[in-house]
Structures are given as C-alpha cells and as structure tokens.
Design a protein around this nucleic acid. Structure first.
Lengths: 196, 196, 196, 196
DNA sequence: AATGAATGAGCTTTCATTCAT
DNA sequence: TATGAATGAAAGCTCATTCAT
C-alpha cells in the first residue's frame, strides 16, 4: 500500500506470469494449443482467474509463450545473410530454424493456420517474421539462386507452417524433408506452360 | 409390399440422405468438419436422430460427403498417365485435381491431418488415393523427371493436404501455387551435403 | 379383400403376435423388462410399428408375455390345497412355484414393484393371483399352522416379489431361501410387546 | 489471504454443498436415485457444473446424501447389544432402525439392489453395515434365539432392503411388518425335509 | 490481485413414439 | 396392416468465462 508495498507486489506478479508461461508452454506441448485453461492454471499453481487477468485471450498467452523464440528467429535472418556462403544458403538455414521452432511446439503450426480466434497470434508472428523472410528471399532472388519471382515471403512462410502441421505425430511424415523439397522448388523456373 | 413398394420408400430415404449430404457439405464449408450435428440436421431440415440413423459416426458422414470426389480423383490417376505427354505431367495434373478437391472443401484438409477421432476418414482417403499417387510417382521417377527417390506417396500427399489447409481464407495465400512449387522441388536433386 | 382374404391375414397377425411374444420373452431375459422396443421388434423380425399395434403399452406386452405362467400359477393353488398334506404345505409349495416364476423372469419382480407406468401389469398379476394366495393363507390360518392373522395375501405376495428382485445376479443372495424364512415367519406368533 | 480468509469462502461452499445434499435428498424421494442431474441442480438453485464439482459421480452424491444415517445405523448396533435384554431383541431393534432408514428414503432400497452403476454406493453401504449386522446375528445365534445358522448378514440385509422397496407407495403394503415376519422366521428351525 | 466456485451454453447420443408410404 | 424412417425430448458431461470473496 505504501511505496515499498508496490515493488513486492510487482515481483509477485512477475513471478506469477513466469510460472504461467512455463506452465502454458509445458501444457501446449502435451495437449496442444487448445488445452483447457484449467490445466494451465493448475500446472502453474494459480487460479484460473489469474490466467485471465494476465492473458485476457488465449492468443495473448500463446504469443507470450513463444515470444522469445520468435525474437531469436527474427534476429537470426540478417546474421545468416552475413555468415552463410550464399543468400540461398542463408535462406535454407533460416527456414530450418523456423521449422525447428514449429515442430517442437505441438499444435502451434495448426493454430497459426486457423486465424479463427487466433488473429492476434497470427498477426504477431507474421508481423515479426515476414520482413525477415522477405529480405532473405529478395537476396536469394537477387543472387539468381531463387528462380521464382512470384513467391512472397508471407505465402512461403505460411506454406512452411502448414507443412509442419502434425509433424511428429506420424513417423511416416517428415515435415523437414517436405520443407526442404519446397525450398528446392524455389530454384526451379516455372514451366513455360504455366503452373496450370 | 409388391416389388415396387420398396423403391418408393427407398426413393424418399435417398432424397433425405441427399439432403443430409448436401447440408453437411454446406455446413462443413462454413463451420469445418467438426460442426455440431444439430447444425447439419437443422440445415437438412431433419431431426438429429436422422443424422445418426444414416451416419452413425461423424467419419461416416464425412466420408460419404466426399466419396464421389475421392473416387473421381482415384480414377483420374491412371487416365492421366495415358493421356499426358510424360509421367511427370500426369502427376502434375493429378496433383492439381487433388488440390482442387481439397481447396473447395474447407476444413477437409485440416481434418485429414488430425487423425484424432477421424481415423476412419483418414484411412479411407489414404487407402484409396495413396496407391494412385504412388503409381504416378513411380512412373515419374522411372522417366527420370523426378529426382527424389526418397519421397513416398503418403508423405507427398500429406504435404499437399497440409499446404491446402486454410486455402481460400486468405487471398494472399495461394495453395495451388505452393503445391506447384513443392512438385517442382521433386525434380531437384538433393544437395550432396544433405538437406540439413 | 374378399371373404377369404381375411382369414389369411388373421393367420399372419397371429403368427406375428406369437413371434413378438417369443421375442419379448427372450429379450426380457437378457435386457430386463425395460428393453428398447427396437430390440424386441428386431428379434421378432417385425417393424417397431407392429409392436405398438399389437401392444399399445409396454405393460400390455409384459402381461401378454407372462399370461400363461400366471394362469398356471393361479390354477395350481386350489390343486395343492387338495393334494398336499396340510394347507400350510400347500401354501409353501405354491409360494415356491411363484418364486420359480419370478426368478426365471429377470427384471419382472422389479417391474412389479414399480407401479410407475406398470399399473396395468401390476393390476393384472395381483387381480389374478391374490385371490388364490388368499385362499391358501386362509386355509393355513384355519388349520392353525399360520399364526399371523394380520398378514394379507396382497402384502405377502408383494413381499415375495420384492425378495426376488435381483435374484440370480449375486451368488451370495438366495431369494428362495429368504422367501422360505419369510414363510417360516408366518408360523411365529407375534411377540407380546408387538412388532414395534 | 490471512488465516480467516479461508473459512469464509469455505462457509459458502459448505452452504452450497448442504443445499445440494438437501436438494438431492428431496429429488431422490420424488424421482428416485436416477433423477436427472439437472433436476437436482435446479432444485438446489445451482448450475449443473456445480453438482459435478462437488460430486463427480452420481454414486458420490448418493453416498453423501445418506452418509449420516448410515453412520448412525452402524453405531447403533453395538449399543443395542448392550442395552437390550437379549441379542435377538437387539437385532430386532437394529433391523427396525435400518428399515426406518430405508423406508424414509424412497428409491434408495431399489438402488441398492441394482448394483448396475452403483457399485460404489452398494459397496459403501455394505462395507459399513454388514459387519454390524453380522455381529448382531452371531450373538443372537449364540444365545440360541436364532435357529438358522445358514443365514448370512449380507443376504439378510439384502432381503430387508428388498422388502423395503416401494414402501410407502401403497398403503396396503407395510414393509415394516413384513420385515418383522422375516426376522421372526429366523427363529424357526428349518424343516427336516429342507426348504424345498 | 488472486482465487476458484459457479454458471450455463453446447455437444453427443439414445430411444419412445408417431406417421407417411 | 406392416414397416421403419423421422422426430425430438432427454440426459450426461465438459469447459470457457465470470465474479463474489
């Protein structure tokens, strides 16, 4: 209540939020991104009301949970452009990181393609990563390695996201391999007769 | 009671089943494949009991709704192999048909990747189409057009299915284009250093 | 439609009714007296509508199913009074028959105690058998073997019916033995202090 | 937050639970032990979810509703053995209490004989009361008042329970009287020729 | 600010009963 | 008269979300 009561409280709140994020991350892995709020609250050792106070909507929680990784991924783009031998190599490496991220988060890829109620989530991810991917793509196009000028970063990323849906659930489906093939397809000049 | 008594009733039932299938198809487009049974019944103008009478499980309904298209798709495979100039051209055309099918049925692609409770559905689709795709793929490999011997029909189809998830919801995402790129990737020989 | 069409129809109807009774008896044994109408219709090889035509209410069906046995039981009373050595012996034997009847019909005893919706059933059974039991009881009282003048046939029979509920479901519960003890209790003069 | 914050909430919850128990007891009387959860919730003035929160399964609710009486009944056994003039008198009095309990709870006796889905209920009642009854029975046998050594507490109690089914619905059926006769039957030596 | 009890909509599924054919 | 398709009322159960404490 006094000036030194606040900091204590704030510390508590922060601790709570951390616990919530950890719990959500753990639960998401097991039960997917649609896991019951109660499960998350229980694992964090807080009441459900607390979850709602910190994260009014589910998307807010999801965004918060994955913010760190998204940031890391965003920062890796420019770095690879410097460190890798060619822009396309940089693109491939970055794509691989992105796949890593999606594949380890069970259900995340699916949620990203849903839009339905996950608008905020969708928005955040794309706003942050699309520019990064666009730079990589543009560079690889400029270097002549990527032969498709008609592929935008947004759709490319979304395609990667989609390919990662359900990855890990079925041994016979290797998302990483399919993404590699997709990336390979970028180097192929479109047939004269058109795609269709 | 006589030999023509049966057909009359059956005609009614068939009409009803048709209404149900149409209603389900329409509702699936709007609410996805998990739409409440009540909604489907309401749209068909029948009671929920009728839905259950015709289609004991949800998967039965979904399979019924899409059976025609699946069959058509299955039959097109061998035909294209004969009519198209090369096996790879046949594969591309068949893939295009498959995409047509998935893209028009909102939510179907997603359901196929879920497995979760849709085992029967999943099974039906794959049992019917994977062999067809496998033949096309094998032929295109034999002709030297497809350079990836490590891509199985199952995973290729699944990748296509995934790429079609959410198609039509966002103008900026053209599933057909991304599938074309994936298919193009099949012609690219894998880098010596591996995909990763 | 003509005068000779009727008999044929009537024969059909009778056959149907017989099939229905047999089916119902069989189903009652397995699923109890509340078994789904459909099950009965299916086993009889007729439509559910036919069941309703023949037996408008469930009780009607139950009554019909057990009518034969009830009649046999009703007729046995006077006979035993003649053939057995004493009226009480006759009573015991008759009670034993009654128990036989109830115990073999799974769920019947329970239905008799429900009243709820089985009024007709209840009524039929009691109207037919209570007088018989009353005669036996009166005779055994007259002979001095039964010491309780305050026990009416109706309540005695109902007690027997109740004791038979669930008989056969649990090896540790021997309905016949308990009925024997109850019957034995009839011979005990009420304590001076009253039953309560 | 402080040590007296807890009790306040708990008081509310307890009040609610009480309302639920009262409502359930009342509804059980009218509609039997299988009454719709919705009805109970409505009568208690709470949502169905609240019922499930407090009593996850129906058996839990039933057990809770009758726990007090069962406990009282269990404790009365040994007491009567001390206070009454003879063991048999104690048995009679205890049986009377048991009947009191069953007769006032319409539908309970029936549920106990069902087993079907009420395993937990059945188990609780018997685990608690059978030993008590067994002691009374053994004592009465030891004193020579009970002449049937072949009657187990379990079956005796079950017989009593059965005799109480439907008690109160029909003025002409006096469950208490019939139980008294059954208890009287315990004192009768079995006929040489057997019960049958 | 945190809690978690309460709410109630919403979904599935089962059958008794009706009624068009 | 027989059929069985259709109906729709029930009932169980599960959360997302609110809100009193």
């Amino acid at each position: 209540m006094s000036s030194d009561g606040e900091p204590r409280r704030r510390a508590d709140v922060r601790r709570n939020e951390k616990a919530l994020l950890d719990a959500a991350a753990a639960v998401f892995v097991v039960s997917g991104i649609d896991a019951p709020v109660r499960d998350i609250a229980a694992r964090a050792g807080v009441g459900v009301g607390t979850v709602y106070r910190h994260f009014p909507s589910r998307a807010d929680l999801v965004v918060a949970v994955y913010r760190h990784q998204v940031e890391a991924c965003a920062q890796a783009g420019p770095e690879y452009l410097e460190s890798e031998s060619t822009p396309y190599a940089a693109l491939l490496r970055w794509v691989d990181d992105f796949v890593d991220f999606l594949v380890t988060k069970h259900g995340l890829a699916g949620a990203l393609s849903q839009g339905e109620g996950f608008a905020a989530l969708h928005t955040y991810f794309l706003d942050r990563l699309v520019p990064v991917c666009a730079d990589l793509l543009a560079a690889a196009r400029a270097s002549g390695e990527v032969a498709r000028p008609d592929v935008e970063a947004l759709e490319f990323m979304r395609a990667i996201g989609n390919l990662c849906i359900g990855a890990g659930e079925d041994k016979r489906y290797d998302a990483r391999k399919m993404v590699a093939i997709l990336a390979g397809g970028l180097t192929v000049r479109r047939a004269a007769s058109g795609d269709r």
